[in-house]
Simulated scan of single mutants.
Amino acid sequence: MAYPEQFSIIYQRAAERKGGKAALQSLLTKPRTAAQLQQLTDADCLSEFSKKIFQSGFVWSVVEKKWPGFEEVFFGFEPEKMLLMSDEMLAAKATDPRIIRNATKVFAIRDNALMIQQVADQYGSFGAFLAQWPGEDIIGLWGYLKKHGARLGGNTGAYALRMLGKDTFIISQDLEAYLRNVGVIEGGLSSQKNQKAIQHQFNLWQQQSGLSLQEISKVVAFSCGDNYVGLQR
């Protein structure tokens, strides 16, 4: 059986594939600090969760272009305003030509507004909640979003967290393939056993490298799969 490599080996291979360490570093970004996360408004968080829900299974660039229309239709994604909307009002919003008309996803906005407000009542803001959540249990945060939010399972919640600046890895196809090839996971990706194994492996790599989870995630993905110099992921 193969075993996970030391992160230094993975990093060197990724650098070679991307044209050197400087080129690799130019492809990496850092997450927000805890202080920066605390500056996020609840509307920022609801907007990003909603955007990722609408982008799921759809062309991301189309959603991005229409997002100013979404902001208008949904009052800047202020959670309090969304919670005042009745089913009839939401159903009417779902037919507005300024947005991508999908009633199920529209109703998820209100559901997630409720989650955000409940968290904010306890922590002061959703950004403050994100800031205090430990990176060594980022899988636990994914689980929280899936359980208490709407349509935030799979990679949807993780991508939203990444865009908000919360440090997280993303289980891309390349990353999943690597983890399977070295025996970290086997069977269903979403099993509790595999989720814990993935978190444990990232915790080890973070101890070895001192990098953020998102930097590690990208480096591992860049070290394998079809993403050589000149190819965008």
Rank of each mutant, 00 (worst) to 15 (best):
M85T: 10
D121F: 09
V106Q: 01
E80H: 11
S86H: 05
K66L: 08
Q39T: 14
A91M: 15
F129K: 01
A92V: 08
G69M: 09
E88C: 06
E72F: 11
T41F: 02
E78L: 09
R98H: 07
K65S: 12
M89E: 15
K146F: 04
M115Q: 08
I53C: 01
M82P: 04
V73H: 02
K66I: 10
C45S: 09
Q38R: 12
A34R: 02
I138R: 00
V119T: 14
V59Q: 15
F58A: 05
E71F: 05
I53K: 00
K66Q: 12
G124M: 05
G135D: 00
G57Y: 03
M82E: 11
Q25Y: 12
E72R: 14
M82C: 09
S61G: 11
F75Y: 12
S86C: 12
A120H: 03
D111S: 09
I99M: 05
W60L: 05
I53D: 00
I99A: 06
S86I: 01
L90E: 08
K21S: 13
F75S: 11
P134H: 00
T104A: 14
K105A: 01
E80A: 15
Y144E: 13
D111I: 03
L83M: 13
P134D: 03
Y123Q: 07
R101L: 10
L90Q: 10
